[in-house]
């Protein structure tokens, strides 16, 4: 073990290799053999939600901030990409980073005033802001075309190359998703990740150890917003259509359910959670499971928190996190200056 490595935390190279082979060779081969373009859409959706789940993992699973408005940042990214593509004719390689930056900027502005809120108050603030952004998408008809949504023609264009064929689009989504998740992995499996974990475990104590808690919370929230925005661009360009319904509160809860099902603090868990919660309803489509989807997701979230609080492979208990969220709620700030709920 080299001196700079944290013991027992390296993602084994073998596992990385296996995942890369599955994503870049086995899955496309299976999709090609199945030969149905609908399955490509499902595969893209799974990868997009894996990225959404991975980005929420950083802020909720690792840093312990209950984020109830993640879908809104996903939406900011999707609308940014759609508008840049339709109004200014920008190609995907330009809209994607700009979508990420737009979502990151909104996340940063949201984080500045809310990060000093204690636990559950912060969660409620993210819920409210998520709904506000959703309502803007719905009602700012001049820009977003309201509930009609925005249609992108010739959606996935990489400069002059048309990548919208399902097999090629799959690879575009796969490359962006894998690279983004590797970046998130590097952040969460490092001393930086340790500092964020300390916030989740006991942020006051972390502050006494010299950790700049508010700065780190704002940073992780912003980074998480960036990748949600990138996922939004992927969605806009592969689906070819964005409308507010895709970024509603239920989608935020869906992403949260993925993180909780996989287990708080586990990046592989967050990805497995996305695969299960997107893949399973598709498999059950023939049984009209789609009609009950939100009901099923709610039941999954509820039962996982109660009966499997560490999720499938998590490192921290979701039940404990929830409990602490509420326990902190009626504790006054130690100086009793700021009212209830403020640090």
């Amino acid at each position: 073990m080299s001196a700079s490595e944290r013991p027992g935390k390296g993602l084994s190279r073998l596992l990385t290799l296996a995942i890369l082979i599955a994503v870049f060779a086995l899955a496309p081969a299976a999709l090609y053999l199945a030969g149905r373009s609908y399955l490509y859409q499902v595969a893209n959706l799974i990868m997009i939600f894996a990225l959404l789940s991975a980005s929420m993992h950083l802020v909720t699973g690792v840093a312990g901030l209950l984020q109830l408005g993640h879908a809104a940042f996903y939406g900011v990214g999707a609308y940014t990409a759609a508008l840049l593509a339709t109004r200014f004719g920008l190609p995907f390689p330009a809209t994607m980073p700009l979508a990420g930056l737009a979502a990151a900027l909104v996340a940063f502005l949201v984080a500045l005033p809310t990060m000093r809120l204690v636990s559950i108050y912060f969660a409620v603030a993210t819920l409210g802001i998520g709904q506000m952004l959703y309502l803007i998408m719905l009602n700012w008809v001049d820009v977003t075309k309201g509930p009609n949504g925005i249609l992108l023609f010739n959606a996935l264009r990489i400069f002059n190359f048309d990548a919208s064929k399902p097999a090629i689009a799959y690879y575009v989504v796969a490359v962006v998703t894998v690279v983004s998740i590797l970046v998130i992995h590097r952040l969460s499996h490092s001393y930086y990740g340790n500092a964020l974990r300390a916030l989740r475990e006991d942020d006051q104590c972390a502050e006494a150890m010299g950790v700049e808690t508010v700065r780190l919370k704002i940073q992780s929230f912003t980074i998480s917003g960036f990748f949600a925005g990138v996922a939004g661009a992927l969605w806009a360009h592969t689906a070819g259509y964005v409308s507010p319904a895709d970024f509603s509160f239920t989608v935020s809860i869906l992403i949260l359910s993925m993180v909780v099902l996989g287990g708080l603090g586990s990046l592989p868990g967050a990805i497995v959670g996305a695969v299960i919660l997107i893949g399973l309803p598709e498999l059950l489509r023939e049984f009209k499971a789609g009609d009950y989807r939100n009901l099923i997701i709610g039941l999954v979230l509820f039962s996982v928190i109660l009966f499997l609080p560490r999720g499938l492979i998590g490192e921290a208990s979701a039940l404990d996190l929830m409990r602490r969220q509420f326990a902190g709620a009626w504790r006054r700030a130690p100086d009793r200056r700021g009212g209830m709920g403020w640090r």
């Binding site: 500092a195 300390a198 475990e201 104590c205 150890m209 603090g265």
Partner: peptide
């Protein structure tokens, strides 16, 4: 920090 390893716990001081 109960859900972190002993090493990771102590590392927070050094990180700080």
């Amino acid at each position: 920090f109960p859900n972190m390893s002993v090493f990771d716990n102590v590392s927070v001081g050094a990180i700080g």
